[in-house]
């Protein structure tokens, strides 16, 4: 090693450090078990599309499958699995110290975690959801399904990355959130869908196509704004925790 050089070191470039975090998190998340598990959830969505092909109104039937199963259950579960673990694993394994003790702005790691989660969820879950109307014989619904699923994936990524940093047993909290908040309450409590991701994803699905979604919280434009805002809010909440939390 040479003589002390840290005094003259330059601040690392944002693009470099963000890419380093992103690449690491992608690598640590890609385990065969996770890929196979999430791909199985995606395969069920496509299977539902095949079954709805025989429905008289296959477009509406496929939209029901996309809304109820894809957006309401499979997508949040897949994102929950990846999102809570992307940083939660590092906390549990006490590895976060290697990323925290660096001259890097604290907003970067949570952002990389949200992006890495969304990056994995898109091919493994969003694409199968988007393909569901196609195999059902309703290709006109594909763009709306893709847009709704992609935005919902982003929103869920923000929520679950934050949960992974805030809660010790984030997966269980997340599971309760998906089943009770995003499903039971969204469907059963009148007006509650406005407070759910699945409600606004349904709004995008409905607004961008000629089908109706199982739950719908408002207009297409509002849906896009709210889902992006939820993702950003989740990221910011994660940043707050990352900045203030104490590390082992």
């Amino acid at each position: 090693m040479s003589a002390v050089a840290s005094g003259g070191a330059r601040a690392p470039r944002t693009a470099t450090t963000l890419a380093a975090y992103y690449g690491l998190l992608l690598k640590t998340q890609l385990s065969p078990a996770r890929v196979l598990g999430i791909a199985a959830l995606g395969a069920v969505s496509i299977l539902l599309g095949v079954l709805t092909r025989f429905d008289a109104d296959s477009a509406q039937a496929s939209a029901d499958a996309v809304g109820a199963y894809g957006l309401g259950l499979a997508l949040p579960l897949a994102t929950l699995w990846l999102g809570t673990l992307v940083l939660g694993d590092l906390v549990e394994d006490r590895l976060l110290v290697y990323l925290w003790l660096k001259p890097v702005a604290r907003w970067q790691l949570p952002l990389a975690a949200v992006l890495a989660t969304a990056t994995l969820v898109v091919p493994l879950m969003v694409l199968p959801i988007a393909v569901t109307p196609l195999v059902a014989g309703a290709p006109e619904v594909v763009p709306a399904a893709f847009l709704a699923a992609a935005l919902a994936a982003l929103a869920y990524s923000g929520i679950f990355v934050a949960a992974g940093l805030w809660f010790r047993r984030a997966a269980w909290w997340g599971l309760a959130f998906v089943l009770l908040w995003e499903n039971a309450l969204a469907y059963l409590a009148e007006g509650f869908s406005r407070f759910t991701v699945v409600g606004w994803a349904g709004a995008v699905l409905e607004g961008a196509s000629d089908v109706s979604a199982p739950v719908d919280a408002g207009s297409l434009a509002a849906g896009v704004v709210v889902l992006v805002a939820v993702a950003v809010a989740g990221w910011l909440v994660a940043v707050v925790r990352y900045r203030r939390g104490e590390l082992d």
Binding site: A9, R10, A11, P12, R13, T16, T17, A20, Y21, L24, K27, T28, D93, R94, L95, Y98, L99, K102, P103, V104
Partner: peptide, 21 residues
């Protein structure tokens, strides 16, 4: 505990990158 999927070189290079070397 260490990063399970990194080699020693990747582990140290990651630190170097995050320090802006």
């Amino acid at each position: 505990t260490v990063f399970e999927r990194l080699t020693g070189r990747e582990f140290v290079a990651l630190a170097a990158r995050l320090h802006g070397l």
